[in-house]
């Protein structure tokens, strides 16, 4: 019983710590996420002084063949933004057409503190 309690407490503390970090309690940073299909009109403002990593996620034309488009698009779409910067959710037009025309890559942008 004693051992169960010790491990359970460790598990609970870990869970609380992970949740706190996730919620930005320790980092003091905001998590921004675009969750709409209207990728061209959205803008978000960074809320803290921390640096952010802009991750582009192809959420539409996945996975297989379009992974190449995703990979090719990465260098041009990954950037670092700072407090006060505005980040737009963007629509990526594939540089090469591995994707069928009916399935254009739609990029979902997640601003993630790092």
């Amino acid at each position: 019983m004693k051992r169960l309690n010790l491990m359970a407490i460790i598990a609970l503390l870990t869970l609380l710590t992970a949740a706190s970090v996730q919620a930005g309690v320790f980092k003091g940073k905001a998590r921004l996420q675009c969750s709409t299909n209207d990728y061209s009109s959205l803008q978000y403002q960074m809320t803290s002084n921390a640096s952010y990593q802009l991750l582009m996620a192809d959420d539409f034309c996945i996975p297989d063949i379009c992974i190449y488009n995703y990979r090719l698009a990465m260098p041009s779409t990954v950037q670092v933004c700072n407090s006060g910067d505005f980040i737009c959710c963007i629509r990526i037009i594939p540089a090469d057409l591995f994707c069928p025309p009916s399935a254009p890559i739609r990029a979902k942008v997640i601003c993630k503190p790092f």
């Binding site: 010790l6 491990m7 460790i10 598990a11 870990t14 869970l15 710590t17 992970a18 949740a19 996730q22 991750l55 996620a57 192809d58 959420d59 996945i62 997640i110 993630k112």
Partner: peptide
């Protein structure tokens, strides 16, 4: 204890960031 910490931490993070993890 180290494994409990590892599994709870990584499992929780993957579930919370499910979409990013899946991609």
């Amino acid at each position: 204890a180290l494994f409990v910490i590892l599994w709870v931490y990584t499992g929780y993070n993957k579930l919370v960031e499910y979409e990013e993890f899946r991609i």
